[in-house]
Amino acid sequence: MKTGELFSSLLLILFGALFCRSSLHIGIGSIGAPGPGLIPFGTGALLILFSLGTIVEVIVTKRAEAGNSAVLFSGRRWGVILAVLASLFAYALVLNFLGFLLATFLVLIILFKIPERQSWKGAVGMAALTTACTYALFAYALQSSLPSGIFEFLGL
């Protein structure tokens, strides 16, 4: 199926074009006195060229085996993927506020719970245990500085 191939190539062309535009903005200079934008501009232009090449290749060779996205995407557990991605994003957002212990505990409950239909008790228990073990390992044994967030006052 070609739509997926065309779609991904168009995305890459867009990506390259964004860099080209930004490169022009910061100054290309000349070959003898290259500006900060010269090489990104060239790289972006090449990316556009190669992506166009991919499109031509797909159309001309009618390559069917690759990028069969309809089949690749149908019948998959989309809910699980989205839930995992969303919870990881949320983790990044709240980590500094909630602190490592609480944020990790919560995200682990979700991860243990959602994909495998674990019981709540099991998920909470394992999340607590895992959080405690990693905290002990990283914060105490390895002296990493993990954010303490709202537990700052506890001096953790």
Partner: peptide
């Protein structure tokens, strides 16, 4: 898999101690 993800979360964070890298 949650352990693998946790492993990645801590790894990404502790390079520069910033949650931005997790994002």
């Amino acid at each position: 898999f949650p352990l693998i993800i946790l492993f990645c979360l801590i790894g990404a964070y502790s390079i520069n101690n910033t949650a931005f890298d997790i994002g």
